[in-house]
Design a protein around this nucleic acid. Sequence first.
DNA 1: TCATTAAATTGTT
DNA 2: AACAATTTAATGA
Length: 213
Amino acid sequence: MDSPLAAERQRAVDELKIADADTSEYICRIGRPVTYWFGVVDGLLKMSSDNADGQTMTFTGVPPGGWFGEGTAMKRETYRYNIQALRKSRVAGLHVDTFHWLLDHSIGFNRFVMNQLNERLGQFIAAREIDRMTNPDIRVARSLASLFNPVLYPGVGEVLRITQQELAYLVGLSRQRVNEALTSLAASGAIKVEYGGLRVLDLGALRSQVTFR
DNA sequence: TCATTAAATTGTT
DNA sequence: AACAATTTAATGA
């Protein structure tokens, strides 16, 4: 490809760094200055922060194909969340300077970032709804649905590699309760429970698992 | 490649 | 939180 876009794309690819993170390792911590815009190649990350009581509050999981930190990178601030690996993961990092260079030179990249921000806004609004739901089955269903977001997490596909323990950490429930919820979701035909992962059969059903029950 | 063993994950109480 | 059952990964012949 030798379109005008190729040069910008090439620079991004050239400067993209890949690193492996072990389980429970931090990719970035609150308060640290931004160095990279991150993307998940493989594995599973957790975005969280600690409140005054020392309790950890989880905001969302980041499965393969997901990017994060663009808001902070744009403003060149310090990270506002902790990003921790729930299991051995492979992470890509694009330096902030390159990130800004792309913003200045590529309309396509701007579109991507804008779309990313917009999509995530929708996800966080949905997350507020989820938090207000008391029914664990629904919480699990909606949390799963957001992990299967094809725009934010194109790397996920139809099978999400996640253990029930990891999902429990994300949703904030016990593994037993998550297991129970997954069983009932599987019975309703929305998903299929597999060893070490989940297969989505009906994403719409997961999303709309709201009113009843 | 196959059989054995260890480790991880799940289902259940 | 603990247990047994099941699945996968690792090991070595």
